[in-house]
Design a protein around this nucleic acid. Structure first.
Length: 489
RNA sequence: GGCGCGUUGGUCCAGCGGCAUGGACACUGGCCUCUCAAGCCAGAGACACGGGUUCGAUCCCCGUACGCGUCACCA
């Protein structure tokens, strides 16, 4: 195994099936941070060799997700590069050529055994059929092959695994050894000539001169056969080195299993739709197997890039914890400027029909005014919907939550509030506060909780709202008074 | 079952030979307070087990248990 050139070249090579999974995005993020940290290149390649599972929608969703997160790549779809095309479905001739050369060199051999035959042989020998292929076709004679062909059988192409230990130093886990015989000769090309992942993935990594492969731990058992292929590719002159490997911890869900694609929490867009912001999502994902310091877990992507060290990645699996993710997200939301927050929250209000598709300048001004008070009260952007609804809802549609009204309405308090607010001169939060305190705390000798509860429910409709005086100022005198009066009828 | 990886509070991440441990989330109590948050203070809570190496092991080695991954003409 010789060393690579100095430039770091990392890659991510997803298969476009389904919707982007947070575990996949975590892996992309680590590759991205690794490449950026080392000033190297990040290659993006699409592994769409299984037409029955891959889809264009999934491919577009992948691009959408990565663009949302601002995870950029140096070579790949849409940006091009020297080693394209970057979709494996368009690289058929590359794989056919290499497979032919490997076969000619004796690295691959034709195998005619069906899975049923392999299983039968295992059973006949008293072995566990789960042991898999038994390498029985390694030494087929030309006559035997001709006989199989005469039966109409099409051979698969298998890689001849070496009979020595395969040892490599995983950047996360250290030295890992696989003994000869523990990995059966894998199929690289189907009977119909179609190349499989087992061929295309290492071949493309070799052709794209990838120096570091950071991927999920679930791929650790497939590493020995890939290293064996690399060694074969070196013997036929396709590449000169074997990349380094780093197997990142799995992302688990509730229970202990790998976070399932069926679980909504695994869906990146589910979180985006709820109002995770990219800064929060990325920060949380980074924590799944890595930490920036022992006393800090809020950071920016610039900080992550500066600090990222793949050898510091934890080797045990991580659990996706929504509560922690939300806490991290909330912290990043609070760090946004008021304008930025306002801008980002608008689409969520539009989706919820709180604002029209084209909000008016007045509506945006109101939103911006309430924004700082909302900003520190949300964990995801969609939380803002219920907090600001009272300011934008058409007056005829406004109605306090029945339960809150039943519990909080108090005729004496509401009457006193109406009288006090009618007398307010300039309609400001400070004046409103003064008037209500004089009337309710001093006048009726009420505890603050008892005093303001009815006013809050009558005007905002809910028992929980942004701070009351500021809310009323923004609501305006007319709507405040009419809602208070309505609560008395 | 074979192969491989892992095991520090409920969860995530630190500590990797020298006082049983530090931070975050969650939880509990308190302060603040017009509600809810935010903020501040306090509290509870962990080194899977057994051997070995060592003056000394959470840390190094071996074993056991448990968990997980993987064993396709999917990726």
């Amino acid at each position: 195994m010789t060393t690579a050139s100095a430039e770091v070249r990392a890659r991510f090579s997803p298969s476009p099936t389904g919707t982007p999974h947070v575990g996949l995005i975590r892996t992309v993020l680590f590759n991205w941070a690794f490449a950026r940290h080392h000033g190297g290149k990040l290659v993006f390649r699409i592994e769409d060799t299984d037409a029955s599972r891959d889809s264009e929608e999934s491919y577009q969703a992948l691009l959408d997700g990565l663009r949302w997160l601002n995870l950029d790549w140096d070579e790949g779809p849409e940006v091009g590069g020297p080693d394209g095309p970057y979709r494996q479905s368009q690289r058929g001739e590359v794989y056919a050529d290499i497979a032919r050369r490997l076969l000619d060199a004796g690295e691959l051999y034709e195998s005619f055994s069906t899975p049923e035959e392999v299983e039968a042989r295992r059973r006949a020998a008293g072995q566990d059929p789960k042991l898999g292929y038994d390498n029985a076709d390694r030494a087929l004679t030309d006559e035997q092959k001709a006989a199989f062909r005469a039966e109409g059988r099409e051979p698969v192409l298998r890689l001849r695994m070496p009979d020595h230990d395969i040892t490599f130093t995983d950047l996360v886990r250290g030295e890992i050894v696989f003994k000869p015989g523990s990995v059966p000769d894998p199929v690289l090309v189907r009977g119909n000539g179609a190349p499989l992942y087992t061929l295309t993935n290492p071949v493309d990594d070799a052709l794209m001169r990838i120096t570091h492969v950071l991927r999920g731990e679930d791929l650790l058992p497939s590493t020995p056969r890939q290293i064996a292929l690399y060694e074969a590719l070196q013997r036929i002159g396709v590449t000169t080195f074997t990349p380094e490997f780093a197997h990142l911890p799995l992302v688990r869900g509730e229970g202990n299993k790998k976070l399932s694609k069926r679980d909504p929490q695994s869906n990146l867009f589910h979180h985006r739709d709820r109002g995770f912001i990219r800064e929060g999502m990325l920060n949380y994902l980074a924590l799944l197997g890595w930490s920036i310091a022992d006393d800090r877990d809020i950071f920016t992507m610039d900080e992550m890039v500066a600090a990222f060290d793949v050898s510091k990645v934890n080797s045990n699996s991580a659990r996706f914890d929504l509560k922690k993710a939300e806490a991290i997200n909330a912290e990043h939301i609070r760090r946004l400027s008021t304008d930025d927050f306002t801008e980002r929250v608008v689409p969520y209000l539009v989706t919820a029909k709180i604002l029209p598709d084209e909000p008016s300048a007045a509506q945006l001004a109101t939103l911006r005014a309430i924004a700082p008070l909302v900003q520190e009260r949300v964990t995801v952007l969609s939380d803002a919907v219920t907090m600001v609804r009272f300011l934008f809802v058409p007056e005829e549609e406004f109605a306090p939550e029945p339960e809150a009204a039943a519990k909080n309405f108090d005729a004496a308090v509401l009457d006193a509030s109406i009288a006090a607010l009618e007398g307010v001169g300039e309609w400001t939060a400070a004046a409103i506060e003064e008037a209500l305190k004089v009337a309710l705390i001093d006048g009726l000798a009420l505890k603050p909780r008892k005093a303001f509860g009815p006013v809050r429910v009558a005007t905002t409709g809910r028992t929980v709202s942004p701070p009351l005086y500021e809310s009323l100022e923004l609501l305006g005198r007319d709507r405040t008074l009419s809602r208070l009066r309505a609560s008395r009828s």
